[in-house]
């Protein structure tokens, strides 16, 4: 199938399959015939059969559809923009942020604030770094502009907490040093979710 076939929007000339719908009955006799036909069609029982089949599928063939959310979570797409992660350098374990301040500049809702100073090696050090999540609109500009891939959007979407400060400090977003080996590199903007293969289904057009 070539691409042109999809671009052809001319409805009249394509091979559409027309549904064979009956006309609504006009006379009393036609109505009666329709009632009799519908009465003796097993459609209602087909409906019962479908629901029963689904129940058997769910109970005995492991096709239960429920995700018991707080206990199990579906993998989230890398494109999802949730609470930010601050990444570390894998070699030294030091944080990647070089204190350039680009994220603070580009932030359109003005929610990032950072203070930097020179440390003893005359290297920029981040002394304060907070993101005000009451204001953040999760646009992703900060991650896009970061030259060092230091700030990226993570997958933490459960934002309920007792205090807003609980996850807006630099240390909270920073990868814990003991979990450095688990640190995920940012997959890139076009990346697909890890369970994408399972989610691929034939579209209804295939039936």
């Amino acid at each position: 199938m070539s691409l042109e076939q999809f671009k052809n929007r001319n409805v009249g000339t394509q091979n559409y399959v027309k549904l064979d719908l009956d006309h609504s009955p006009t006379t009393g006799w036609c109505q009666f015939k329709q009632v009799v036909k519908r009465t003796f069609k097993p459609e209602l029982f087909v409906g019962l059969g479908v629901t029963f089949r689904e129940m058997v599928n769910a109970l005995f063939r492991g096709k239960m559809h429920t995700t018991q959310y707080p206990f199990e979570k579906l993998p989230i797409s890398p494109r999802y923009r949730a609470i930010h992660d601050m990444l570390r350098l894998l070699e030294s374990g030091n944080y990647r942020c070089i204190g350039c301040g680009l994220c603070e500049k580009i932030c359109i809702s003005d929610c990032i604030s950072m203070e930097t100073k020179y440390d003893e090696n005359q290297r920029k050090e981040v002394s304060e770094y907070t993101i005000n999540f009451g204001r953040c609109i999760f646009c992703g500009y900060c991650a896009e502009v970061c030259p060092e891939l230091a700030i990226v959007h993570g997958g933490r979407y459960e934002n309920a907490s007792e205090q807003r400060a609980s996850f807006s400090l630099f240390e909270d977003m920073l990868t814990p040093i003991d979990q450095l080996n688990l640190q995920q590199e940012y997959a890139g903007f076009g990346a697909i979710s890890p369970n994408a293969d399972e989610n691929v289904k034939s579209t209804p057009l295939a039936y």
Binding site: A58, L59, H65, Q68
Partner: peptide, 13 residues
């Protein structure tokens, strides 16, 4: 429970 099973859900759990 039964309505849930018929819709492939778990129901009260």
């Amino acid at each position: 429970k039964i309505l849930a099973f018929m819709q492939r859900r778990l129901g009260p759990q």
